[in-house]
Amino acid sequence: MPKVELTQHLYAFFPDLEGRELFVEGDTVADVVRGMEGIAPGFAFYVCDELGRLRQHVNIFVGDERVTDRVTLTDAVDAGSRVFILQALSGG
């Protein structure tokens, strides 16, 4: 199953996730976000808007590659994938 790693920032909103090994089932990044929503209800709306699009200042990497489909999250993942969810460096 793909392994999910999170920016430290998300632990502020989901402290129960800190220190846990996060594995979710699925073939796409959208599946990964859905899987995380199952583990931590409310998670998906932090990462995506209500249309399911990746928020403007959020990034997801599969391995070393930033996802290319930010609208429907169809980038593929496999059993050995490491999926990183993090925020862009912006703000004040």
């Binding site: 920032h9 909103f13 709306f45 932090y46 990462v47 959020v58 862009a88 912006s90």
Partner: peptide, 27 residues
């Protein structure tokens, strides 16, 4: 307004000692 993570509604039922995400507003 969380910036990166979007707008969220939060609530406290103990006078502000603890907070939780409320059911969120979405179009």
């Amino acid at each position: 307004g969380h910036g990166h993570w979007g707008a969220k509604l939060s609530r406290s039922t103990d006078g502000g000692a603890t907070w939780e995400d409320a059911p969120q507003i979405a179009y």
